[in-house]
C-alpha cells in the first residue's frame, strides 16, 4: 500500500464531493469522547472473546460516541470482526463461542440475562462483508424484510421502502424496478440495498463488517457517501482493511493487533491523530503500510 494520505479527513473527503458543511462539522469530534463513560452510545468494558479454547480477543474497552463513525482497523486475524459481532450478539451463533466483559448500550449491558437479544439486534443493525440480499425476495420486499421478520406491522410500506432506499442512496437507481429480484442489482447496489434493509428497523447503531471489500471503487465511493450521511443520525462502527477508507469516513479509529496471542486494542483516537500522530509505533507502521 502507498504511504497513506495523512492529510486531514476533510481534504480527502472533498475528493468524493461530500457536503462541506458535514465534513467541517468538528463539534462532535473530540478525543475526550473516547474516554467518556456516559449513558449514551455504545461502550465495551474489558471485552474478551473465545472460540472454543482459542482466545481471539482480549480486554477491549472502547466508547463509540453517539452519531459518529468509528473505524476498526488492523491486519487480518486481529479480532476486528469478532469484536464487531460481539456488539450485537451475533458472536453467540458460532458454536462454542464464549465472551467475557460488558457491552453497554445506552448504559445497559446487552449480555444481561433480562435483555432480549432479538429486540436488541433490531436496534443495533449489521451489514456484512458479502452483500446478501434475500434471493427469494424482490428489491422492495428486501427492504422491509426486517419488519416482516420482526412482525412489525407497517401501514405505509411503500413510504418505508422509499425512505430507506433514499437514505441508502439507492432510490434513484431502483425506483422503477422495485419488483425485480434483489440479486439482479450490481454488487455495490446490493450492498446499499442491505444497508437500506437495516435502516428499515430504525436502528440506533449500524455495524458494518468490511462492507466494501467485495466492491469496485465506484461502488465503494457511493457506499462511503451513504455511511457519512447516515452518521448524522446514528452511531456507526465500520471494520475496514482499507486505510484510505478509514481516513475518508471515520471520525475515530481503533487499531487492533494480534502479536501471536489474542487480538487486542493498541490505540484508539481521532482518525486524524491516528494517521498523523499515532502514539504507538506499531500503529504508525500499520497505517503507513509497513506491515499488515
Amino acid at each position: 500500500m502507498d504511504t497513506p494520505n495523512l492529510e486531514t479527513k476533510e481534504v480527502i473527503n472533498s475528493n468524493i464531493q461530500m457536503e462541506p458543511t458535514v465534513m467541517n462539522d468538528t463539534t462532535r469530534r473530540n478525543a475526550d469522547n473516547l474516554e467518556a463513560k456516559g449513558e449514551s452510545g455504545l461502550e465495551t468494558r474489558g471485552v474478551h472473546a473465545w472460540f472454543d479454547k482459542h482466545h481471539a480477543l482480549a480486554d477491549v474497552s472502547l466508547h463509540f460516541p453517539e452519531n459518529t463513525v468509528t473505524g476498526l482497523i488492523g491486519p487480518s486475524g486481529c479480532g476486528k470482526s469478532t469484536f464487531l459481532r460481539l456488539l450485537n450478539r451475533m458472536h453467540e451463533f458460532i458454536p462454542k463461542a464464549a465472551m467475557a466483559g460488558q457491552v453497554l448500550f445506552e448504559g445497559n449491558d446487552i449480555y444481561a440475562d433480562d435483555v432480549n437479544a432479538i429486540d436488541m439486534r433490531r436496534r443495533i443493525g449489521m451489514v456484512f462483508q458479502k452483500p446478501n440480499p434475500f434471493p427469494a425476495m424482490n428489491i422492495g420486499e428486501n427492504v422491509v424484510a426486517g419488519l416482516k421478520l420482526s412482525k412489525i406491522k407497517s401501514d405505509n410500506k411503500d413510504e418505508v421502502i422509499e425512505d430507506c432506499l433514499t437514505r441508502a442512496g439507492l432510490w434513484n437507481e431502483v425506483k422503477d424496478r422495485l419488483k425485480s429480484p434483489g440479486g439482479s442489482l450490481s454488487g455495490g447496489q446490493q450492498q446499499r440495498l442491505c444497508i437500506a434493509r437495516s435502516l428499515a428497523l430504525k436502528p440506533d447503531v449500524l455495524l458494518l463488517d468490511e462492507p466494501c471489500s467485495a466492491l469496485d471503487p465506484g461502488s465503494t465511493l457511493r457506499v462511503e457517501e451513504t455511511i457519512v450521511q447516515l452518521s448524522e443520525s446514528m452511531t456507526i462502527v465500520i471494520v475496514t482493511h482499507n486505510m484510505q477508507q478509514a481516513a475518508r469516513v471515520s471520525d475515530y479509529c481503533a487499531f487492533f493487533l494480534s502479536d501471536g496471542g489474542p487480538g487486542h486494542l493498541v490505540e484508539a483516537d481521532l482518525t486524524t491523530s491516528i494517521f498523523s500522530n499515532p502514539k504507538d509505533t506499531r500503529t504508525a507502521d500499520y497505517v503507513q503500510g509497513r506491515f499488515g
Binding site: R121, S150, C194
Partner: peptide, 12 residues
Amino acid sequence: DLIDASYALGGT
C-alpha cells in the same frame, strides 16, 4: 450469510 442476515435484522 443469509441466516446471519435474518438474525441481524432481529429475526428469531
